[in-house]
């Protein structure tokens, strides 16, 4: 469907085109079953950033306030990329891992499901 406008060929800027982010792309990162963080966070990251660096630098800044965070066994973390299960290669870049502008990464930590296993 298309918008009905008062003139022909209505269009406007894509406000969040990747070119607007000064060389970065947006990446959303959420942690399932940890509603203390009520939604995923959004981060402007260089596409060349290795996935391992995201885990070392970005993820702790976002989620380390949760007591489960210190107990994460990173070898067992399951990842979803844009809704599909995903095995990131840690030394490869976001781009090479298929993480694009405005991709959503979800982190699942089996056995760690929030305070008293409550999903919070």
């Amino acid at each position: 469907m298309a918008v009905k406008a008062a003139y022909e060929n209505y269009s406007g800027p894509n406000r969040d085109a990747v070119e607007n982010f000064h060389g970065n792309q947006l990446v959303y990162i959420g942690w399932d079953e940890h509603m203390m963080f009520p939604c995923a966070g959004v981060f402007p990251l260089p596409p060349q950033m290795p996935f391992g660096a995201v885990i070392k630098e970005v993820v702790p800044a976002a989620f380390s306030l949760h007591p489960d965070f210190a107990n994460i066994d990173w070898g067992k973390v399951e990842w979803l990329l844009d809704g599909k299960s995903f095995n990131p290669t840690l030394d490869k870049s976001l781009e090479d891992n298929g993480v694009h502008h405005k991709s959503l990464i979800r982190m699942i930590t089996p056995g760690l499901n929030g305070i008293n296993n409550s999903g919070f």
Partner: peptide
């Protein structure tokens, strides 16, 4: 962190499946 917003309502993406209220 800054929140991920819904493109339409612009509310942070906090809503859950009512049948499974710990699942966004």
């Amino acid at each position: 962190s800054l929140p991920q917003l819904c493109q339409t309502c612009q509310i942070p993406m906090v809503y859950t499946d009512p049948k499974n209220p710990t699942k966004r």
